[in-house]
Amino acid sequence: MVSAASARPVHPEYVRAQNPGKTARKIATRIALIVVSAIVIVWIAFPFYWAFLNSIKPAVDTFGSKWIPWVQFEPRLDTWQRVWSIREVRQGLLTSATIGLGGATLATAFGVPAAYAIARFRFGTKGNMAMTNWFLSQRIMPPVIFAPPIFILARTLGLLDTVLALVLLAGTFNIPFVVLIMSQMFRDLPVELEESAQVDGASRWEIFRRIALPLVAPGVVASWLIVLAFSWNEVFFALVVASKDAIPMTMYIVGLSGTRGVDFPAASTMALLMIAVPTIIALTCQRFIVRGLSLGAVKG
């Protein structure tokens, strides 16, 4: 068909006669695919591009639609320099990174063994399902429920305004997510390997650590990364708990709407700084993450 098409102009009637509807349909599908892809790509990417533009535009051009650097406006890096020079911003990024890394590590450390337990052991007749449901139900609880008591409790325990408190909160509230992903991962592993090791006299812990864990390593990494991104983006508990030393970047960004309004070039620059980390994660580990998200969804 292709050669025929390139040889001379193809009359639609001719194509239809030759191949009842098929080629026309294929071409139509192809065009539709290209058009939809283009729309989707623009739809997804434009906000990022816009943030980037805002960060290199002079404040006067923040509003209105100047799209093309050099042609419509002179790009400049002074917003980036200004933002980077703010001590609190660097501190905030560091705090966010600590919360992300700490939260992710905490959640995986507690979540993976629990997932293993649910996948491999039997807890009564309905126990396993009940456990899965329970973890899932933890995930549905809106954080706002916990905010009032957690503020008071953190104060009582002297954890107010500590990064530790934010790490604990971010980590804990993401354990269910890890459990749900990882229990599915463990179930998908053939159990025979572990059973033969058991016959050889290995302890449960050794089996877990030496055999099961290495096999699901990609899953562990995926869930670790996803939780890292979630914790990195967390703002709600930060607003409640942090007040001076433990202010993460997200909370600093919320504050950009100060007494004299939002500094949009700075906000866009900080937004890009914030988005950079999850973006790098998403770009480098895309396969893991899609799989992780799917599992989280599929097995709920």
Binding site: V40, I41, I44, A45, P47, F48, A51, A229, W232, N233, V235, T250, I253, V254, A267, M270, A271, M274, I275, P278, T279, I281, A282, L283, Q286, I289, V290, L293
Partner: peptide
């Protein structure tokens, strides 16, 4: 890959 980006974009930003 592109589709994973919005998922993790910081909502406050």
């Amino acid at each position: 890959t592109l589709a994973t980006l919005p998922l993790f974009a910081t909502p406050v930003a």
